[in-house]
Amino acid sequence: MPHQKIIQTSSIDAQSSTRSTSNTGTHYDDLLYQRSLIYKKNEISLSAMTFLFQEMINYLHQSSSTMSEFELKLSRYGQSIGLRLLELLNFRASLPASLTSIPTRSSILFSSSAPLTDQANSNSTNTPDAIRKREEESSTNADLAKHITKMRRRDLKILDILQFIHGTLWSYLFHHVSDDLVKSSERNNEYMIVDNEPQLTQFIPQSSKFLNSCHFFVCGMIQGFLLNGGFPCSVSPHLMPVDGFDERVIYLIKFDEQVLERESLRF
């Protein structure tokens, strides 16, 4: 079963990138804003994701002259996702339980009423009829903010935002919370997030000298998330196999001294 785990991305992430190739201008923009930010259980296959990941690595590897350049570039891919997830996941966390408790049902519901609009291959249906349907959908579902009575608090402390990463971000990306969140006992600006079975890299042979570098994608996501949340830091992966978990990786987060300084001044 663990090998059947699937990577999920938001339906918007997946769709907009494909859609944009055929749609341009305001029409495309309209569609973007009609789409709901609500959580939908749209899963894409792990093999597809792995294929994309492999192509990313391949491309970056060819365009980089050094390993550190490769790592940096891969990390930046991750960052651009991380900074988006920061906004998206916090926003979703603000939604009242009545909306969040039905994600699975609602997605079924909507996919039955407008089966094509939620699919990545629906870009051929631009008939007035389909557009009207989408607008109907948007009127009921697209604007979620009005249902929010209280926005989730912005995380102000290191521990708060790390817990959000450990819990919410990890669950969103990998369907489970991270395996551990540890504070370094030696340096007070270092924290570690542990993943026993990293999914994205599971098909990369353990003998590959790239394996560690490939973890920089996830590092980037963490970094982008923290950086834009106001916690500048650097994140690096460290392979730390233990019994039973040969691919166990530790993401080491080093916060800028400034972050600690601010915390000591503010709180």
């Binding site: 990390s75 900074l83 950086l227 834009n228 500048p232 400034q258 972050v259 601010r262």
Partner: peptide
């Protein structure tokens, strides 16, 4: 190249975040 996006974020590390608001 999406680096631009993250470049933006990276530059913010130069900012003096401690002094913000003070």
């Amino acid at each position: 190249t999406k680096e631009d996006v993250s470049n933006d974020a990276n530059n913010d590390t130069d900012q003096d975040i401690v002094s913000k608001g003070f």
